[in-house]
Amino acid sequence: MQKIYGSAAEALEGVLFDGMLIAAGGFGLCGIPELLIAAIRDAGTKELTVASNNAGVDDFGLGLLLQTKQVKKMMSSYVGENAEFMRQYLSGELELEFNPQGTLAERMRAGGCGIPGFYTKTGVGTQIAEGKEVKSWNGQDYILEEGIFADLSIVKAWKADDTGNLVFRKTARNFNPPAAMCGKICIVEVEEIVPRGSIDPDHIHLPGIYVHRIIQGEHEKRIEQRTTRKKEEA
């Protein structure tokens, strides 16, 4: 099966529909599927629900889909870096479901593993627990959280072979594997497509079974907070 597509727009053909649930990889601006996000903006798909740890910044990442008001609802753990997000949220234009970061990651992982719900002690006794089933084991309360089953996963990896075996790079891995796992269709953008057999099978981070479509492209990879030390300090 041919998984490699010529562009983000081609890879998204026949996949997008209004009101769909998209799971996106990335943490802050690190490891985000920036090409696919831009292509979804260009496609104009509306009423999106997006499960993503963050919402990008005003002019990059998922912030692009907020600018065009294509997003109806975000499922995120932290949205602090995005003024347009705040404006839309406070004016009631945008729904926001806060998920503790580990709960969001596990909800994606669980969805990808066919697990519709799991119990966690994260958030017990807080607002997050409101309306959720509570169960007790050995005197500790746990709340029921649901797996995420997305219509589409958009992820960023470093390298892929043509069968979709993926390698991520450093902390750009973050939410990408669980996001990839939980979608009916998973589209991956990579910096490099390498020949089959050139990745040591023991070094594959996510096997190609999770990956349906692959594109290669140039990535801006914007840095959100550039922090450095001076050579003299060493």
Binding site: G28, K170, T171, K221, I223, T227, K231
Partner: peptide, 26 residues
């Protein structure tokens, strides 16, 4: 965000966009 064994800030010019901490710092 997915790392054990976090090191100090990089030297100027050696920042890597794929390597950040939970505060999104390089």
């Amino acid at each position: 965000n997915g790392m054990l064994g976090m090191g100090p800030f990089p030297f100027e010019g050696e920042e890597d966009p794929d390597l950040i901490n939970a505060g999104k710092q390089t």
